[in-house]
């Protein structure tokens, strides 16, 4: 079975080629194509950030957009009201989301399964409503939204590219560490892990905060790409759903799963949209159903189980 042995090499070559091409894309791509690639990388960031916590811990975060939306608002307010530079503005988005994650993480991460998922979903919806209320209007401009002009396309493109690279490398480093190993143990059997000296609360909250930081930073970059944010766009549940679907497709709790999922599904969805117009959602849905039947745990996990990829945590 020589093809089996070839898979890791072909895969690695493909990923490196993709990274090199994506890293140099502004040199040879026009604005339209660059924007499409920007969106793909944005989803690599979101799926990667979601996977960093939920993929490894098994705590399925259905309110992930809370951190994306907060990051959007925090960085746009930074740009508009505080005249921040591009990088400080983006990092402000990440930091605000991270702080909120730390505050809600302690109480919320005590509840498991569906209850955690529902609480997060409710929090994300609540945040959207709160942002629109008159109490926060002086800061957020309520339903009227906020326009933002910061950076040019190439700068924003490099920002999202660098963030995507950081997230992948951070996940790889994390997966190899004791921290990552103990979060996987939490997913597999939380109370058994605590009996084997794992401080489960500390591990969960830390990963939750890092995930929120990445999501908030990505949100900030996306906000400048959109030029305008308002509560429904910033807290769009689509961001949560796509992150989950992409991370699951690629392989939960793996390093490369989120990249493979985001790139593949974004390509499929662009292609289907381009060629089938209104039917795209139906076709996309059918493709997803097939994938879930054949590879319920995602591409990377399946390849590991088949022995094609080694069962190491850093892939």
């Amino acid at each position: 079975m020589t093809w089996r042995r070839a898979v890791p090499y072909v895969g690695a070559t493909g990923l490196i080629a993709y990274a090199v091409l994506a890293g140099t894309a502004p040199l040879f791509l026009g604005p339209a194509a660059l924007s499409l690639l920007f969106l793909t990388l944005y989803y690599v960031c979101l799926a990667g950030a979601w996977n960093f916590f939920s993929g490894f811990s098994g705590y399925i975060n259905f309110g992930f957009v809370l951190f994306v939306g907060l990051g959007m608002y925090a960085s746009v307010i930074g740009f508009v009201d505080f005249k921040m530079g591009l990088i400080p503005g983006y990092l402000t988005g990440g930091l605000v989301s991270a702080i909120v994650a730390a505050v809600i993480g302690y109480p919320l991460l005590r509840i498991r399964g569906a209850y955690f998922a529902i609480s997060m979903l409710a929090l994300a919806e609540g945040a959207r409503v709160l942002i629109s209320t008159k109490y926060l209007t002086p800061l957020t401009r309520g339903g009227a939204g906020m326009p933002v002009l910061a950076g040019n396309l190439t700068q924003k493109y490099y920002a999202i590219f660098l963030l995507a690279v950081c997230i992948v490398l951070a996940t790889m480093f994390f997966a190899r560490s004791y921290f990552g190993l103990s979060l996987i143990a939490v997913r597999e059997d939380e109370s058994a892990a605590s009996g084997l000296a794992v401080n489960t609360t500390a591990v969960k909250v830390s990963a939750f905060v890092v995930s929120a930081f990445f999501a908030g930073t990505a949100g900030g970059i996306q906000a400048t790409f959109l030029h305008y944010i308002e509560p429904f766009a910033a807290f769009d549940i689509k961001y949560t759903m796509l992150s989950i679907v992409m991370a699951m497709f690629g392989g939960l709790g793996t390093v490369l799963g989120a990249v493979i999922g985001a790139v593949t599904l974004q390509l499929i969805s662009d292609y289907v949209w381009l060629h089938l117009g209104q039917a795209n959602i139906t076709v996309f849905g059918l493709i997803l159903v097939c994938l879930v039947i054949w590879m319920p745990d995602g591409v990377v996990v399946r390849l590991k189980e088949m022995g094609i990829l080694p069962k190491t945590r850093w892939i």
């Binding site: 190993l181 996987i184 143990a185 597999e188 059997d189 058994a192 892990a193 069962k311």
Partner: peptide
């Protein structure tokens, strides 16, 4: 045990 972790892990 932790099913989807290797023996060594």
């Amino acid at each position: 045990i932790f099913p989807k972790m290797t023996l060594l892990e």
